[in-house]
Deep mutational scan, measured.
Amino acid sequence: NKEHILAQKEVLTPIEYEHYVKHLFDIGEITKELYIELSS
């Protein structure tokens, strides 16, 4: 869920976080809207 993803932002580097969010989007775990929101 969104809270879990945002928690990852605390422990990952910005680049790792971007890759993580992109991966979730690629596998269909999150919607495009959520992907855009989380990567901003």
Rank of each mutant, 00 (worst) to 15 (best):
N1R: 15
N1E: 08
N1D: 15
N1P: 09
N1K: 14
N1A: 08
K2S: 07
K2P: 11
K2G: 05
K2E: 06
E3F: 08
E3I: 14
E3G: 08
E3W: 05
E3M: 08
E3A: 12
E3R: 07
H4T: 13
H4F: 07
H4R: 09
H4K: 15
H4A: 10
H4Q: 13
I5G: 02
I5P: 02
L6P: 02
L6M: 13
L6K: 11
L6S: 05
L6G: 04
L6H: 07
A7M: 09
A7D: 06
A7V: 06
A7R: 13
A7C: 03
Q8F: 08
Q8Y: 05
Q8I: 10
Q8P: 02
Q8A: 11
Q8G: 03
Q8M: 14
Q8L: 11
K9M: 10
K9D: 01
K9Y: 05
K9R: 14
K9L: 08
K9G: 05
E10L: 10
E10V: 11
E10Q: 11
E10Y: 04
E10F: 03
E10A: 12
E10R: 08
E10H: 08
V11S: 11
V11F: 12
V11T: 15
V11E: 09
V11G: 09
V11M: 14
V11W: 10
V11D: 06
V11K: 14
L12V: 04
L12G: 02
L12N: 02
L12S: 04
L12I: 05
L12A: 02
L12R: 05
L12M: 15
T13H: 08
T13E: 08
T13W: 04
T13S: 13
T13D: 14
T13N: 09
P14V: 09
P14G: 10
P14W: 08
P14H: 09
P14M: 09
P14R: 11
P14E: 10
P14K: 11
P14Q: 11
I15W: 11
I15R: 10
I15F: 12
E16Q: 15
E16S: 04
E16N: 06
E16V: 03
E16D: 11
E16W: 03
E16H: 04
E16A: 09
Y17G: 01
Y17H: 03
Y17T: 01
Y17S: 01
Y17R: 00
Y17N: 01
Y17E: 00
Y17D: 01
Y17Q: 01
Y17A: 01
E18K: 07
E18S: 07
E18F: 06
E18I: 10
E18N: 07
E18Q: 06
E18L: 11
H19R: 13
H19V: 14
H19M: 10
H19E: 14
H19D: 09
Y20I: 05
Y20V: 03
Y20P: 00
V21R: 00
V21Y: 03
V21M: 07
V21Q: 00
K22I: 05
K22W: 11
K22D: 09
K22L: 07
K22P: 00
H23P: 00
H23M: 12
H23Y: 14
H23R: 08
H23G: 07
L24S: 02
L24K: 03
L24V: 03
L24W: 03
L24H: 01
L24G: 01
F25K: 05
F25A: 05
F25Y: 12
F25G: 01
F25P: 00
F25C: 04
D26I: 11
D26N: 08
D26A: 10
D26R: 05
D26C: 13
D26F: 05
D26Y: 09
I27A: 15
I27R: 12
I27F: 08
I27H: 13
I27M: 15
I27T: 13
I27E: 11
I27S: 15
I27Y: 11
G28A: 05
G28N: 07
G28V: 01
G28K: 04
G28Y: 03
E29S: 08
E29A: 15
E29P: 00
E29T: 10
E29F: 10
E29Q: 10
E29Y: 15
E29L: 15
I30F: 01
I30N: 00
I30G: 00
I30V: 05
I30S: 00
I30W: 00
T31Q: 04
T31R: 04
T31V: 05
T31E: 09
T31W: 04
T31I: 04
K32Y: 15
K32I: 12
K32R: 09
K32E: 12
K32L: 15
K32F: 13
E33H: 06
E33P: 04
E33N: 09
L34C: 10
L34G: 04
L34H: 06
L34Q: 13
L34A: 08
L34M: 14
Y35G: 00
Y35S: 02
Y35H: 03
Y35A: 04
Y35T: 01
I36Q: 14
I36G: 12
I36S: 12
I36P: 00
I36Y: 14
I36V: 15
E37D: 15
E37C: 04
E37G: 03
E37Y: 08
E37K: 04
E37R: 02
E37S: 06
L38P: 00
L38Q: 01
L38G: 00
L38F: 05
L38M: 07
L38H: 01
S39K: 10
S39Q: 13
S39M: 13
S39E: 08
S40N: 12
S40P: 06
S40F: 12
S40G: 13
S40T: 14
S40W: 10
S40Y: 10
S40M: 14
